[in-house]
């Protein structure tokens, strides 16, 4: 069995275990048999109405952030890049916080005003960032993209701070959203994000060879026959779609998009043909586990999942990083 097959088997197995744990553990223990034995209606209700959507949403958000992070790190050739580097997430946050701040509720979409506003913010930011980067430098060099992302990110961050500063007493709602959570969302949030996850992931997956080539620099990729400009554009759009939709439904959950690609790369190598898919699966696994911990560790109080991702992710990452470097040195 070669390394890639092993990588897929391990990733699928851990994902399945995570899903199993995610749906069964909680204030009420749900046996796995509930899937095929619907005699216990309470258990069935909890499984399908609460646990399943929560686990699937966590999985989709984690997967989106991880695959987008992997693509951005490869594209920008920068190990510090993550899905939030481009500033798109700040746009999504501004959209969401604005909804909370002004108490906006649009007709028709109703309770889904926040994610809709958030996605609109993300989309607007994406076009502004890419447009501005092209204005500065027609060939859109990596540095240009990163700096443009920083400029827009900090400007949008200041708007966020302004709204937070003016909110006064009722900060909890905004902070809670910003820290990120996948609780109490329901199936509709899944339907809302799913098309974006599929489209974004396919766009990135179609560029897996190009990402490999671009690791050697844009010039090298150009010489290998990659239409660098078009591919870069595709990857930025694909990653932004994933990031924007993930942030819109769950808030800015940190760390997953930065660390999962790294862990995957350290364990299985940086070939994007596998890295993208594996990051997708591992991102889902990590966020499902983190969400499980977030809602059970000091039950009945729920922690924001973003707190847990960093709390768990950083030490795990440190361990893998240490082991890998030591192995390399020997």
């Amino acid at each position: 069995m070669n390394k890639a097959t092993l990588a897929y088997l391990v990733s699928i197995a851990t994902l399945l275990v995570a899903v199993w744990l995610g749906v069964s553990i909680g204030t009420v223990k749900i046996p796995i048999s509930t899937f095929w034995d619907s005699t216990d209606t309470t258990a069935t209700n909890i499984l399908y109405k609460i646990r399943m959507p929560r686990v699937i949403l966590a999985g989709l958000v984690g997967a989106s952030l991880a695959i987008a992070g992997a693509a951005f790190q490869g594209l920008l050739k920068n190990p510090l890049a993550d899905p939030y580097t481009l500033g798109v997430s700040s746009g999504a946050s501004v959209g969401a916080v604005m909804t909370l701040f002004f108490g906006i509720s649009l007709p028709i979409v109703g309770t889904y005003t926040l994610p809709v506003f958030s996605m609109a913010g993300a989309a607007l930011t994406m076009f502004l960032v890419i447009g501005f980067a092209r204005l500065v430098d027609r060939s859109m060099k990596m540095e240009t993209i990163i700096l443009t992302g920083i400029i827009f990110g900090s400007f949008l961050g200041s708007i966020l701070s302004l709204m937070i500063a003016l909110t006064g007493e009722e900060l909890r709602q905004i902070i809670g959203w910003l820290l990120g959570s996948v609780s109490m969302r329901g199936w509709n949030y899944i339907y809302m994000i799913l098309p974006f996850v599929i489209i974004g992931s396919i766009i990135l997956w179609l560029n897996r060879m190009e990402l490999n080539a671009m690791l050697f620099g844009e010039e090298r990729a150009h010489h290998l026959g990659v239409n660098v400009k078009r591919r870069k554009f595709m990857i930025l759009i694909g990653g932004s779609i994933l990031t924007g939709s993930a942030v819109a439904v769950s808030g800015t959950i940190g760390f997953v998009g930065l660390v999962v690609p790294h862990m995957t790369r350290l364990m299985w190598g940086s070939d994007h043909r596998h890295l993208l898919t594996l990051s997708f699966m591992n991102g889902a696994t990590l966020l499902i586990i983190c969400d499980l911990i977030a809602r059970t560790i000091i039950s009945p109080t729920e922690l924001p999942v973003g707190v847990i991702t960093a709390f768990i992710g950083a030490p795990v990452f440190a361990f893998i990083f240490y082991r890998q470097r030591r192995k390399g040195a020997l």
Binding site: Q73, G74, K77, N78, P79, M209, N212, A213, L215, F216, G217, L224, G225, V226, R265, G269, S270, D271
Partner: peptide, 16 residues
């Protein structure tokens, strides 16, 4: 380069 590739994967990119 920032990330690592094996020799064969690198050469294989020539077939892109």
């Amino acid at each position: 380069h920032a990330f690592s590739h094996t020799v064969k994967d690198t050469v294989a990119l020539g077939r892109y």
